Amino acid sequence: MSTLFIADIHLCEDEPTITAGFLRFLRCRAIFARSLYILGDLFKLWIGDDDPNPLHYEIAIALKKLTQRGIPCYFIHGNRDFLLGKRYADFCGMILLPSQSIIKLDGLNIIVLHGDILCTDDKHYQRCRRWTHQHWVQKLFLFMPLKFRLFIANKIRANSHYANTNNIVDIMDVNPQTVIAIMDTTHTTLMIHGHTHRPAIHNLLKQRYRVVLGSWKNQGSAIELSNNKVILHEFPFSF
């Protein structure tokens, strides 16, 4: 059996085609996997586990059906859904993992992460990330009324989109030295991440590899690990 990795699905009510494609992926592909790792940005926006969005419930039920069949589902927070909490994860049957997690599969030492911490050349983003990941900031935000949280989140997202359109493209990609430093520190030979939306398998020095997931914008993207082989899949939503 194979292990599947996905990221950057960016589910939202405005993209029913992506939602249908993701639900089909769970029913037709993930059901045959040994386990599923979701490496962040499952949702386009997350303002708290208490948000009564019907889409959140629909996805939770689908994930719960998967995990109830004995297929573990692991989740690492992304930059869009870092507030997804234990309450929602427990309802889905998902296991929350630290932002950088080392796993051992098929004899390989693998580090899995969303990928945003690798983009160290984007100084502005890294400063914002450090601020929003402070516990007291998150606690204060979640204490606010839902409507106010949604207003703030949309404002931040709009500002982020404007900043990204004016950024140099390479600044928003990973820093190679940061990648090597993390792999050296963690003694891993394979890194799997998303965030940059640049699907590829990169052959690094010393028989090490960095594998990047694509975003689910126009098609699905998944990494399959089986018998020491890493395969990057891209497929239509209506496969």
Rank of each mutant, 00 (worst) to 15 (best):
I192A: 01
K229N: 12
L42W: 04
R210D: 04
G93S: 05
Y88H: 12
S221Q: 04
H56I: 14
I61P: 01
F148L: 15
L11W: 07
V174Y: 15
L39T: 06
D173K: 06
T178G: 03
R29Q: 14
Q134K: 14
K104V: 15
I47N: 03
I31S: 15
K147V: 09
K44Y: 11
Q138D: 04
I71T: 12
S160Q: 02
R208H: 14
I9W: 01
Q126C: 03
V112K: 03
T189I: 09
D116N: 14
F5K: 02
L83P: 03
I6Q: 02
V169M: 05
L225P: 04
I18D: 00
F148W: 11
T165R: 11
L39S: 02
L142T: 07
P54N: 08
N167Y: 03
A60M: 12
P236T: 05
F237W: 06
D8P: 11
D106S: 15
E224W: 00
Q126G: 04
I201Y: 00
E234D: 13
A30G: 15
I102H: 04
S99G: 02
L113D: 01
I168L: 15
V179I: 15
L42V: 01
N166S: 11
M144C: 10
L83E: 08
H193L: 02
S99L: 15
K217M: 07
L232Y: 03
R29H: 14
A60I: 11
I9Q: 05
L26P: 10
Q134C: 07
I180Q: 13
V174S: 15
